[in-house]
Computed example of a mutant assay.
Amino acid sequence: MRTLCSSTLIGEAMLIMFAGLVAMKLTDVGTGTIWAVSAAAIALCVLLCGVITRPGAVQVGWALQAAVLASGLVLPTMYAFGVVFGGLWWCSVHYGRKIDVLKAQRAAAEAEAAPVAA
Rank of each mutant, 00 (worst) to 15 (best):
T3A: 09
T3K: 12
L4T: 06
C5D: 13
L9E: 07
I10L: 13
G11W: 04
E12H: 01
A13I: 05
M14Y: 11
L15Y: 03
L15A: 08
I16D: 05
I16N: 06
M17I: 15
A19T: 10
A19N: 05
A19M: 00
G20A: 08
G20T: 02
L21I: 04
A23C: 04
A23R: 03
M24N: 12
M24G: 06
M24D: 07
M24R: 09
K25F: 13
K25G: 10
L26S: 12
T27A: 01
D28L: 14
V29Q: 13
T31M: 11
G32Y: 05
G32W: 04
T33G: 07
T33R: 05
I34S: 00
W35Y: 08
W35A: 01
W35V: 01
A36L: 14
A36S: 12
V37N: 05
S38I: 06
S38W: 02
S38V: 07
A39F: 08
A39R: 00
A40E: 02
A41F: 06
I42H: 04
I42M: 12
A43N: 00
L44S: 12
C45V: 00
V46K: 01
L47V: 13
C49Y: 06
C49H: 04
G50R: 04
V51T: 09
I52G: 00
I52P: 00
I52E: 00
T53G: 14
T53M: 10
T53R: 12
P55N: 11
P55W: 15
P55F: 14
G56Y: 07
G56V: 02
A57V: 03
V60T: 13
V60L: 09
G61C: 06
W62D: 07
W62V: 14
A63E: 13
L64F: 06
Q65V: 14
Q65G: 15
A66D: 09
V68K: 10
L69D: 08
L69W: 12
S71G: 07
S71A: 11
G72K: 14
G72H: 10
L73V: 14
V74A: 07
L75R: 01
P76D: 06
T77Y: 15
T77K: 01
T77E: 10
M78H: 11
A80D: 02
A80Q: 06
F81I: 00
V83S: 04
V84W: 03
V84M: 06
F85Q: 00
F85W: 08
G86F: 09
G86T: 07
G86W: 01
L88N: 02
W89G: 08
W89D: 05
W89R: 03
W90C: 11
W90T: 15
V93I: 13
H94Q: 05
H94F: 14
Y95V: 04
R97F: 14
R97P: 06
R97N: 13
K98P: 06
I99Y: 11
I99T: 04
D100L: 01
V101M: 10
L102E: 15
K103P: 04
A104P: 03
A104Q: 13
A104I: 02
Q105P: 02
Q105M: 10
R106N: 11
R106F: 10
A107P: 03
A109M: 08
A111H: 15
E112L: 15
E112F: 15
A113T: 05
A113I: 06
V116R: 13
A117N: 11
A118D: 15
A118V: 12
A118L: 15
A118H: 13
A118C: 08
